[in-house]
């Protein structure tokens, strides 16, 4: 057998699994979006009816708005935090290894346990966050019980689970050539100038990739937070698209409408992949990979 045949053999489960679990479901979502389906009777063709129904539902506009706010808050904060921590902790100073491990710890906490910890941390009356704010004489919002603070709280909780991006940027920073950085110092560049003109441009591909990946992850993170902590409330302030789709499908047996809602996530994915593809070709297929 040639290398190619051997490789094809070992790739079979990965490619078959991808087909079964991602590509076929994506096409099925697209098809279901144009039907009425309650899982008990076969799907009925509806054309664009689902989209008309959804356009009339006030919750849909609200869910789009909430999801956009979540992405706009959580993604930049998560990428910036991962970058700042990776650059600060990349050195071999004594104790740095322990701090790196500490930064990773919240990322291994299972979603259900993390949501419980979040509910307790942010409890308006006796949660540690408000007790600490009270002790400092600062105003303490009712967090998950008020629309505005609930939106912020849900996004802020996601900022601590950045292990993956942190590790990727740590590796990317360590991969930079020490000579280039030393040359910058010799030329008299300070820490900020080195970051601005050398480190950040060299890390740019990784930052772009992480940002795209984070937008995709936002759908899961937002669902976990809303389903486990807020139930979409208060006053629909944390009703995100995947939660609304879940309610349509499992609360109302309206799978067609739910699939039509999830098309928004698939269109987002298509846009992210298009951006990635344009950049990938610009990088010449990323030879160094």
């Amino acid at each position: 057998m040639s290398w190619g045949t051997q490789a094809a053999l070992l790739l079979t489960p990965y490619l078959a699994g991808t087909l079964l679990l991602l590509l076929v479901p994506a096409l099925l979502t697209l098809a279901l979006a144009f039907t009425g389906y309650d899982t008990l009777t076969p799907p009925v063709w509806r054309g664009l009816q689902n989209f008309v129904t959804l356009a009339r539902d006030v919750r849909v506009g609200q869910a789009f708005q909430n999801t956009l706010i979540y992405v706009a808050l959580a993604v930049p904060l998560r990428v910036a935090a991962a970058l700042a921590l990776a650059l600060w902790l990349q050195g071999r100073r004594p104790g740095a290894g322990w701090v790196r491990a500490a930064v990773y710890v919240p990322s291994v906490v299972p979603p259900v346990a993390y949501a419980l910890a979040g509910l307790w941390l942010l409890n308006p009356l006796y949660g540690p966050v408000n007790l600490a704010l009270g002790a400092l004489g600062l105003p303490a919002p009712a967090w998950l019980a008020e629309a505005g603070p609930a939106r912020v709280a849900v996004a802020l909780l996601a900022v601590f689970q950045i292990g993956e991006g942190f590790v990727v940027l740590l590796a990317a920073r360590r991969g930079l050539s020490p000579e280039v950085l030393a040359a910058a110092t010799v030329d008299g560049a300070g820490a900020w100038a080195t970051f601005r003109y050398i480190v950040r441009p060299l890390l740019q591909p990784w930052l772009v990739l992480l940002t795209l990946r984070d937008v995709a992850l936002s759908f899961q993170n937002a669902f976990a937070a809303a389903y486990l902590m807020t139930g979409g409330g208060p006053y629909y302030a944390t009703l995100f698209l995947p939660l609304l789709a879940h309610e349509e499908a499992f609360g109302g047996f309206r799978y067609g409408e739910a699939a039509a809602l999830m098309l928004a996530a698939l269109v987002t994915a298509a846009a992210l992949i298009a951006v990635f593809w344009a950049l990938w070709r610009g990088w010449g297929g990323a030879e160094e990979w």
Partner: peptide, 26 residues
């Protein structure tokens, strides 16, 4: 190899939440 690497990175950009429902039907 380049095509499959690109595919793998592209797959990272598909939100799992987008296909939960269809997987369930499947």
């Amino acid at each position: 190899r380049r095509d499959l690497l690109a595919l793998s990175v592209a797959l990272l950009l598909i939100p799992g939440a987008a296909v939960w429902l269809a997987r369930l039907v499947l």
